[in-house]
Amino acid sequence: MKLKNEWPKHYKREVITHYCPGCGHGVVHRIVAELLEEMDLGKKTIGVNPAGCAVLAYKYFDFDMIEAAHGRGTALATGIKRSRPDLFVLSYQGDGDLAAIGTAETIHSASRGELFTVIFINNAVYGMTGGQMAPTTLKGQKTTTSPDGRNPKYEGYPLHITDIVATFPGVAYAERVAIKSPASIIKAKKAIKNAFQTQVDGLGYSIIEVLSACPTNWKMSPVDSMKWINDVLEKEFPLGVLTDKRKGNS
């Protein structure tokens, strides 16, 4: 018998993350680390970690990383990629970071068609600060700052930022995936692989939105969280490829 799931080379060995039980970050981290190894990219990668729950990602990933101020991930990534176009650059961000405080940076880096990849974790709440309403919070969803449920009359509507940037000519690959089951995780990995390859081929901006569980702030068990992604979150944010300008796909 042999080990079927080797520890990924670019994930620090036997690390115990600070993430809550059932949090989607752990799975996405693993997928990213696996792909950087499988695609032989990790050695030439600089990653940008955000302010938010993933602020400590540099303690888990084993490749060069820098932390960004809240919302500024894609501005840092722009500076890095423009200075070192030969490197593989990755910005890992959450929904508050990417779709609220960093909206301008997200929109304009995509508009410029910057040649890096964005991993966008959408869990519809602010996780680290304790479950406040996010730009992606669903209508009716209760959070600590929408205690009666998000009411569009007062709080507006969930923002579909990946759908917006997917319409830009500079965006070569955009897909929305979910972390809710083994099959969906395999699909998510495939999507991130496509995004990485898009960057390697220099085709344009690539972004993968990952619907990901925050059981703690959703006040659900991890298993129920998977079901909620499937039954509720996905209805507002349908999965699928949003744009694909790779050869034969455009």
Binding site: M1, K4, N5, T17, G22, G26, I185
Partner: peptide, 19 residues
Amino acid sequence: GCTACAIVCPDLVIEVYGE
């Protein structure tokens, strides 16, 4: 030996051995 458990584990605590 399907590894579904390892795929969904956020904390990489599962090792699956097989053929």
